[in-house]
């Protein structure tokens, strides 16, 4: 499969601080995980993909078009770290609104409510839902219209392990059907569930490969240990 996202020499400076340093990454199909401690630049990189981040240099191309171009706006589903839904509306009302903005069929609303397992809470105001339910409502919005690329910024934070398991299965299901899924997390144990991993630290990608490859190369038993080993080697 040809690359969904091509990032060349991407440089981002925010408030005088370099957040992304001359990044070169290609993202293809499957589930790609972006792992790293909080503050390492994961969210900034994701914002670049969606085209809402002001960059200082380099290029980001998504499906052959520059990130943020008009042609891409209904092909990318994006979930920010904060649950970007309206607290005073119900999940269904939120979804119906975003569905109209995207111009997708109303039947999509029911489909995505089921996909994120919010059926029991579909008509309760989002502000009264738990944190995990709110972030699932936000995720559901990103699934509307079956986008070709999903950019998910820490979608599983604070979720019950059973639910986390379900969502990861959902990500793989979507990937199997051809959606490129790009997920960030700061929880290293989620790394094992990705087809391909990008480990990030201080604005740079320090490792790139399948979880197995990364562990093998670092001679470590877990991704967390591999991360530590790579950082130590870098410092030395």
């Amino acid at each position: 499969m040809s690359a969904a996202v091509e990032i060349r020499d991407l440089h981002v400076v925010r408030g005088g601080r370099t957040v992304l340093e001359h990044l070169d990454v290609t993202i293809g199909g499957g589930v790609t995980g972006l792992l790293g401690p909080s503050g390492c630049g994961k969210s900034t990189l994701m914002r670049c993909l969606v085209g809402v981040q002001r960059t200082s240099g380099g290029s980001v191309t998504v499906f052959g078009d520059a990130a943020g171009s008009r042609a891409l706006r209904d092909r990318i589903g994006y979930v920010t770290q904060a649950a970007s839904v309206y607290d005073d509306l119900t999940p269904v009302e939120n979804l119906s609104f975003f569905a109209r903005v995207l111009g997708v069929d109303r039947s999509e609303v029911d489909r995505v409510v089921e996909a994120v397992d919010l059926g029991d809470h579909r008509d309760r105001v989002v502000g009264r839902l738990s944190g995990g339910q709110r972030s699932r409502a936000s995720l559901a919005v990103a699934l509307l219209g079956s986008p070709d690329l999903l950019v998910l910024d820490e979608p599983t934070v604070g979720l019950d392990p059973v639910l986390r398991e379900d969502l990861w299965s959902l990500f793989h299901e979507l990937a199997d059907r051809g959606t490129a899924v790009f997920v960030s997390s700061h929880v290293m144990d989620e790394a094992e569930r990705c087809d391909r991993l990008l480990l990030m630290r201080e604005g740079r990608i320090i490792a790139d490969g399948s979880p197995g490859e990364i562990k093998e190369r670092a001679g470590a038993a877990s991704v967390e240990e591999a991360f530590l080993a790579i950082v130590r080697r870098d410092v030395a």
């Binding site: 706006r73 649950a83 970007s84 309206y86 607290d87 975003f98 903005v101 995207l102």
Partner: peptide
């Protein structure tokens, strides 16, 4: 501040 504007601007709005 809630991020809904950013989401909308990333959509065809």
């Amino acid at each position: 501040s809630s991020g809904t504007l950013e989401r909308l601007l990333a959509m065809p709005m």
